[in-house]
């Protein structure tokens, strides 16, 4: 990694932490508070690419585990990973890597729908695939109940996917960062 890559990794880790400082928005109707933090995962993949984005989120998770209060609401520590939401958090680096990889592969031919598909795949499907069984294991409930409980967050995730597509498109126009794979 060059110095510039290290700076990118650190800045996207810092961005994910800074997004946790934005006040959470409560979705109308559903009533579940959503934080901007997991947008950091998608943005890191979409703008920093597979290796740098994945490394940024790995760094973020390591710092959270080490006890720094970087999660939304000033939370931190191994308790986060050991708690029910731990599966989601641990998947963040993988999600950023996969999103980055798919963005780099599709770079020349990106359409809005392709971006939505990539973000849903990496940012939603992949993280839920690990996050839900994790809840089931930690909380000792069956998978169906864990899935039902997690479903409350889907509308928030849908909003985030749309926002990230808009943000990533605008940023790419102003400052291209990815190289095609």
């Amino acid at each position: 990694m060059s110095t510039r890559d290290i700076v990118f990794v650190a800045l996207f880790a810092a961005l994910t932490a800074a997004l946790g400082l934005f006040p959470p928005v409560t979705l109308p109707v559903v009533g579940v508070p959503i934080t901007a933090q997991s947008m950091g995962v998608m943005l890191a993949g979409a703008l920093a690419g597979a290796v740098r984005g994945g490394a940024a989120l790995a760094l973020f998770v390591v710092l959270v585990c080490a006890g720094l209060p970087l999660m939304a609401g000033g939370r931190g520590g191994l308790g986060i990973v050991m708690g029910p939401g731990g599966g989601f958090v641990l998947m963040w680096p993988v999600a950023a890597f996969v999103i980055g990889y798919l963005y780099e592969r599709a770079l020349g031919t990106l359409t809005v729908w392709k971006e939505v598909l990539i973000l849903v795949l990496g940012g939603v499907v992949l993280t839920y695939a690990v996050g839900i069984p994790w809840i089931a294991a930690v909380a000792r409930v069956d998978l169906a109940k864990a899935a039902l409980g997690s479903a409350w967050f889907l509308p928030g995730d849908a909003v985030k996917v749309v926002l990230v597509v808009l943000i990533a498109r605008a940023v790419r126009r102003a400052y291209p960062t990815l190289r095609a794979r």
């Binding site: 510039r4 997004l19 934005f22 703008l47 926002l163 943000i167 940023v171």
Partner: peptide
């Protein structure tokens, strides 16, 4: 608007990255 907030922050961050890397070197 989260988009209107995040886009300028991210663009400024990316522009900073050039100088930060140069400053480190």
């Amino acid at each position: 608007s989260l988009v209107a907030l995040t886009v300028p922050v991210v663009v400024r961050m990316l522009k900073m990255s050039d100088d930060i890397a140069a400053a480190i070197d």
